[in-house]
């Protein structure tokens, strides 16, 4: 009897410890995908949209927000229902959740930012097939608690976002001479700066992304095995 209560109190203590709002473990969940385990540069997922939408900063930002939204909420929803989801149809369930959220984003965009909807339309729909999101659902949300899953989603989403924003920054700067539509070269007195046509093409995205992966991997010391 006495040992049982002891065990119980120990359990409670352990639980309380892990419920730190941002414990070390949780910080790691959040920060790992930003650098050491980045979905794009290390896992090489989500390349398709990273190449396609990064011609200009503005659509890239909208895309990044959309992906973060979808990944966080699908992680949360799947994590909440993870014990109810039948194992044999779990992929379909994950897909349904993602597709619903993506459709939601696309509808909202169509209603409130039609200009961006015209630019991004097809690519928003393609978030459904973004491997990062399904990868996180299958690898993390199916086996972890809701709050941890939100952190994981946030980490992966932002890890994706900062890379595509970096690619877009260089592509817009070199390809169109602007950042968020602001004419950089003109404002610093270099109005003769020619635009690099390669950068507005998807080839430019390959080059920029390749360079970013190279720099990031050599800094973090990641080696593929």
């Amino acid at each position: 009897m006495s040992t049982e209560t002891l065990e119980q109190t120990q359990e409670v203590a352990v639980k309380k410890k892990s419920e730190d709002f941002l414990s070390k473990r949780r910080k790691k969940i959040l920060s790992d995908p930003l650098n050491d385990d980045n979905p794009i540069t290390v896992q090489v997922l989500g390349i398709c949209s990273a190449l396609a939408v990064t011609v200009k900063m503005e659509p890239t930002l909208i895309m990044a927000i959309a992906v973060v939204f979808v990944i966080v909420f699908s992680n949360l929803i799947i994590s909440l229902i993870r014990n109810l989801v039948p194992n044999r149809v779990r992929i379909i369930v994950q897909l349904a959740v993602i597709a619903t959220l993506v459709t939601l984003v696309s509808e909202v965009l169509k209603a409130y930012n039609y200009e961006m909807f015209k630019v991004l339309g097809a690519f928003i729909g393609l978030i459904i097939t973004n491997c990062i999101i399904m990868g996180r659902l299958e690898a993390f949300a199916m086996g972890n608690k809701p709050y941890d899953s939100i952190l994981d989603g946030l980490g992966s989403g932002i890890g994706y976002a900062w890379i595509i924003l970096a690619v877009a920054f260089f592509r817009e700067l070199l390809g169109s001479g602007s950042v968020f539509g602001f004419e950089v070269w003109n404002s610093i007195g270099l109005s003769g700066m020619p635009n690099n046509g390669l950068m507005v093409d998807s080839i430019g995205a390959f080059v920029v992304l390749g360079l970013i992966i190279w720099v990031q991997r050599s800094l973090s010391g990641y080696v593929e095995n």
């Binding site: 349904a96 959740v97 597709a99 619903t100 459709t103 939601l104 509808e107 909202v108 169509k110 209603a111 409130y112 930012n113 039609y114 909807f117």
Partner: peptide, 19 residues
């Protein structure tokens, strides 16, 4: 899923039409 999407689509239809 179907119900919630239908609801959203209905709610947003006027705003979409306007844009």
């Amino acid at each position: 899923v179907g119900g919630s999407l239908a609801l959203v689509s209905q709610l947003l239809a006027p705003a979409q039409k306007k844009s």
